[in-house]
Structures are given as structure tokens and as C-alpha cells.
Amino acid sequence: MGAMQILFLLAAAAVLGAAILVVTSRNLVHAALWLIVALFGVAVVYVLLNAGFFAIVQVVIYIGAIAILFIFAVMLTRQIGGKDGGSQNHSTWWVAALLSLLLMVGIVWILSTWQGFATELPALANEKELISELGKSLVSTYLLPFELASVLLVAALIGAIYVSWEKSR
């Protein structure tokens, strides 16, 4: 077991532990803060995969924007202390558990049939030019998914404007 594997196991343990605390902590702001820890852990995993760009983007978007907006939304709600003491579980929690179990089995099954699952990590061909390679592949090989994601984001923007539009005017 190399140093990389130890680091990966530590990061994965941090992500899982923080994720469990996100869903179990009664205080909503604490849950949002644990979510930030989990997202940091994912950024560490990206670094271990030699994808520094994705690690930074993870921090910019998920921690800098999304988690902060979560906290913002939570701060605007009442009863964030969660001292009512009721059950935190919905009555049909077993459906969610079953679905996520099925999803995990499916992912593991697909990965185990993939040939790259058992091979060693190949060395990167062009380590200095990773970002420009990424940019080029986004507009050549993966053009369709890239454009579809852009259309989705534009649709979300228009939807947000429509929802917040003042109808009286």
C-alpha cells in the first residue's frame, strides 16, 4: 500500500464521515458545514487523481457558491436549531435505502466489467498542457454533452428569472 492509497483512504473516510454527519446532525447549519468538509474531501480525491483543475473548480463552485448559498438559505429559515426532538426519518426511508443499494450494486457491477478497473494508473501523456487539452476535447470530442449542459444551464437561468419576475408589472 503506497502513500497515495493511504491518502485516498483518509480522504474517502473523511468524505463518508462528513456525509453521514450531514444527514444526521439536527442543526441545519452544522449539516451545511459538514457538507463543506465532504466537498473538500472530494477535491482532495481529485488532486490524488492528478486533476488539479477539477479540484480547484470543485472548491470554487461547490464551496464558494453552492455551499455558501445553502448556508444563506438556511440562515433565512426559522427553527434551524432542531430542538423539537422528533424523528428525522421519513416513514418510507426503506425505499430510499433500497434504491441507493441497487444503484451502488449497479455501479460496482458496471465498473467490474470495465477493463480499466484492474489496470494500473497510466502516466499522463502531456502533463504540462492538461488544461488546454481539456479545453480542446470539450469543443471537439465532447462537443454534444458540453452544448447540452450549456442549454440546460441557460434553461435554468431563464426559469430562475421567470420565477422571480414580478407579475404585477
Partner: peptide, 17 residues
Amino acid sequence: INVGVLYIVAVGAIGAL
């Protein structure tokens, strides 16, 4: 690092936090 400018933006978010 080769993503220095993005790193600066990312770190700014931590101060806001």
C-alpha cells in the same frame, strides 16, 4: 500551479466562509 488564477478565486471563497 498551472491553475493559479482559479486558485485565487477559490481561496477567496474561504475568506467569505
